[in-house]
Write a protein that binds this DNA or RNA. Structure first.
Lengths: 117, 117
DNA sequence: CGCTATGTATAGCACGGCTATACATAGGAC
DNA sequence: GTCCTATGTATAGCCGTGCTATACATAGCG
């Protein structure tokens, strides 16, 4: 079992991860949570108390729009990226990559290269 | 001028950066601050209110030992890695690299490769 | 004599991830 | 019928850490 990522490292990256997950189509909260866990190999497993306030922030900032699904038995809230959300994703991605480059100057360049697969 | 790194991204990495800076010999606070700014190309410029509490934490956790320099006119507090601090640096470095790999699975592999220079 | 750089320190704020708790329905096990 | 789990969303309050503001002291220059 892979160790989970430290919470403090996750701070400032979680928004980016959620925006990235939403980039390939609308999803509801529980689904986002699962995809984060699956794609990260269980290294990122958000509790509901982390995920939902985060989604509410993204909504308040107009990075996502929402729609309640009430037709089926399940009560679900779907989240979809807005145009601003897509720009935000690009900006955050760029900022994150710059951060990684910057940190490498300190921890050395012995880090594994990004997978090209 | 390079934009400074977002505070939230820095969280969880600052300890690592300071430990890394201390890896090539003892330094006092003001010197650490300068080296962080220089090596990062001004992307990381810690205020005193951030740096000193951080150093105090590292000391309380026994990752560094300290020595006051009082002989000269300048009153300086030198920080030096302990054995535990060196282990901590290795562990944090490993954890950080794992975090980066993990995040790449979300933001894509289009990131620039680490410099081999 | 004042101004800047050097040098360390603390108090209190802001923010976001955390745990704990709450509530509701679907569906299988018993 | 009832229990248990998975599904699904939500809020309250704690906690760690980076932030600003403030404080104090000396060296050195104009």
């Amino acid at each position: 079992m892979a160790a989970s990522i430290d919470s403090e490292l996750l701070r400032g990256s979680l928004d980016l991860m959620v925006l990235a997950v939403l980039a390939d189509g609308p999803k509801y909260g529980y689904l986002i949570q699962q995809q984060l866990r699956d794609t990260s190999g269980s290294r990122v497993d958000l509790q509901a108390g982390t995920l939902y306030p985060l989604l509410h922030r993204l909504e308040a900032d107009k990075y996502v729009r929402t729609r309640w699904e009430t037709e089926t038995g399940r009560r679900r809230k779907w989240y979809e990226l807005t145009a601003a959300g897509k720009r935000r994703l690009q900006d955050q991605t760029r900022a994150w990559q710059e951060y990684v480059e910057c940190l490498r100057a300190f921890v050395g360049s012995s880090a594994p290269a990004p997978r090209t697969a």
